[in-house]
Simulated scan of single mutants.
Amino acid sequence: MGQQEISLTSPSKSFRLRSPSLNSLRLRRIFDMFDKNGDSMITVEEINQALNLLGLEAEFKDIESLIKSYIKPGNEGLAYEDFVALHESLGDAYFGVAEDVDEDTQNDDLWEAFKVFDEDGDGYISAKELQVVLGKLGLVEGNVLDNVERMIVSVDTNNDGLVDFNEFKEMMRNTIAPS
């Protein structure tokens, strides 16, 4: 998969989050994933590293200027509450309001997300592909193939051992809660 550069000055059609806000549990998981050293703060460096691991390169100074105003004085990075405020701000100001999104646009966004996992481009997410992405993100869930296979089985409605786009879309609809 080639490197893709993202711009933080204008929305990218392939990286907009137009679905309803993530529920607080999922947002907390994202925060914890970015907080590599476990100090309950996300630094600009940690966010930059996570974006790079996902193959989404951004200029450090752009990330820093975006995040800086959300870091409270005296803190090294974003506390969880600051991260939530940043998420809400980006959702409202940068990515647009979810209620204005038509189904075709949502499908386009989900297809872009699906392609991140479908590394070989065959239209299916295998356990091995999911394991690779989880590994890139540094998630321990991806360390054991059996765990990853169980994740696949939990959304594999046709029992073929793979996740196709429709199964992925249904999984996303069930895990993203309205704000």
Rank of each mutant, 00 (worst) to 15 (best):
G2T: 07
Q3G: 09
S7Y: 01
S12C: 14
K13D: 11
L17V: 14
R18S: 10
R18W: 05
S21I: 08
S21K: 12
L22M: 12
N23E: 09
R26A: 13
D39Y: 09
D39N: 15
T43N: 06
T43I: 08
E45K: 14
E46A: 07
E46T: 10
I47H: 00
N48S: 15
Q49A: 14
L51V: 12
L54H: 08
E57K: 15
A58Y: 07
D62P: 09
D62K: 10
S69L: 13
P73Q: 09
G77C: 08
A79Y: 09
A79F: 09
Y80W: 06
F83K: 00
H87K: 10
G91R: 02
G91L: 03
A93K: 13
Q106Y: 11
L110A: 02
F114Q: 02
G121Q: 06
G123A: 02
I125H: 02
K128D: 13
L134T: 00
L137W: 04
L137V: 07
L139W: 04
E141A: 11
G142D: 03
M151R: 03
I152S: 01
V153W: 06
D160Q: 03
V163Y: 03
V163I: 06
V163D: 00
D164I: 01
E167Y: 01
F168L: 00
N174P: 02
